[in-house]
Measured scan of single mutants.
Amino acid sequence: NQASVVANQLIPINTALTLAMMRSEVVTPVGIPAEDIPRLVSMQVNRAVPLGTTLMPDMVKGYA
């Protein structure tokens, strides 16, 4: 099963992502692949992401 990127904390809108904000977890539906975590660092979210939410490509500016 593919691990996805999950929010490790509440991430406010327009926040630049850091490693501490993300974790890898096997979830359904599948979100951004966990191997993309290094690429996500310093990218901004375009909405508030609650703790435990799977990051989807449309939630991260410049990812999709």
Rank of each mutant, 00 (worst) to 15 (best):
N1H: 06
N1K: 03
N1T: 15
A3Y: 09
A3V: 09
S4Q: 02
S4C: 04
V5K: 00
V6C: 03
V6Y: 02
A7E: 00
N8I: 12
N8S: 13
Q9I: 14
Q9A: 14
L10W: 10
L10V: 11
I11E: 01
I11H: 00
I11A: 01
I11V: 14
P12S: 11
N14D: 14
N14M: 11
N14C: 11
N14R: 07
T15K: 04
T15H: 12
A16Q: 14
A16I: 13
L17R: 00
T18E: 09
T18W: 03
T18I: 09
T18D: 13
T18M: 11
T18V: 11
L19E: 09
L19V: 13
A20Y: 15
A20N: 12
A20L: 09
A20H: 13
A20P: 15
M21W: 03
M21C: 03
M21T: 05
M21V: 08
M22T: 03
M22I: 12
R23A: 09
R23N: 12
S24L: 06
S24C: 03
S24F: 08
S24E: 12
S24G: 12
E25M: 04
E25T: 06
V27G: 03
V27H: 03
V27F: 02
T28M: 06
T28C: 06
T28K: 03
P29G: 04
P29W: 03
V30K: 03
V30Q: 09
V30C: 03
V30I: 09
V30P: 06
G31L: 01
I32C: 03
P33W: 06
P33R: 07
A34W: 09
A34C: 05
E35H: 07
P38C: 10
R39W: 05
R39Q: 05
R39L: 08
R39V: 07
L40W: 02
L40N: 00
V41T: 11
V41E: 06
V41D: 04
V41F: 08
V41S: 07
S42C: 06
M43G: 03
M43E: 07
Q44M: 11
Q44C: 08
V45C: 05
V45Q: 01
V45K: 00
V45E: 01
V45T: 13
N46W: 07
R47G: 05
A48G: 07
A48L: 06
A48I: 12
V49Y: 02
V49G: 01
P50L: 14
P50D: 14
P50N: 14
L51Y: 08
L51W: 11
L51E: 11
G52T: 03
T53Y: 08
T53S: 10
T53P: 01
T54P: 05
T54W: 02
L55S: 01
L55R: 00
M56L: 15
M56N: 11
M56I: 06
M56R: 09
D58N: 13
D58I: 11
D58H: 06
K61L: 11
K61V: 12
A64W: 02
A64H: 15
